[in-house]
Amino acid sequence: MLPLIRTEQLSKQFGMFWAVNRLTLEVGEGETFGLLGPNGAGKTTTVRMLSCIISPSEGSALVAGHDITRDRVEVRRSVGILTENPSLYEKLTPVENLKFFAQAYGITNESKIRARTRELLEFFGLWDRRDDKVAFFSKGMKQKLAIARAIIHDPPVLFLDEPTAGLDPEAAKLIRDMVVELTSRERHTVMLCTHRLEDAEKVCNRVMIINRGASMVVGSPDELRVKMSGNPKLEVKLVEGSDRFADRVSSLAGIRGVEQFNGKLLITADDISKATPLIVKVLVEEGGQVLGVNLLLPSLEDAYLKLIREGGAK
């Protein structure tokens, strides 16, 4: 996969404070890459550097093949950005907002602008409100329009900075679903900044957790879960627990540990999926009455919190 975003030791210093510290990453074409971190982690600063709004203090980066320090106009032309705030002109209508940004990004063909505007407003469910001033829109509608604005020129690279921030759960879910649908439909390479684990988990192919401007870990959401919180565990609920059952399960090959509490067994194994049928079989053979079996996946939240706490303790 060709990297459309590539940074090398990218850093940004404000006074004595390093907002971004030697960040190195690659994002392949068509990939949705998450920058996950708490407020002040350096996500927005990274996106601002990559979209040539601010300059890096050190390091380099290529976006869509253009150097962010030398080919600023070309970089700007190649990216779309959803900023922290919707950044919409509230006295203008959605159509006027989109038309202005389409022209600012170099689209001169009126019919092309009209067609793209209609396509996006219909996709985001705003076509019926096309002639209303943006000032009358809800926060969720503004966020949808801001995403439409970011992709009006069909950029190869899209930066989404906190797309669900400040939205209620329902609106946040809607935006997430739309981003997923959009990225699969239009094949943008997306860098999504968020402090919401749900966003990263549901939208991103790969995630980098950053804190204090530095990369802490990178991988797919599943990889991060395993890497940071260990393998999945098996929870077996029994009508009545007994040390006997725990001992029997412990004796099986590949079992790493068994905990027993409140009639439940919590089992870790080298390959829990493979071991599950055998565990259930021996428990039944030992006279255990199995009420339920659950595979407990470590959550990304656990991984994230563990990392951030460790980072904060340093």
Binding site: I81, T83, E84
Partner: peptide
């Protein structure tokens, strides 16, 4: 004040 500046500065307008 209206927080619209960042999107404007992100455009390729010189």
């Amino acid at each position: 004040d209206r927080k619209t500046l960042e999107a404007l500065l992100a455009t390729p307008l010189t």
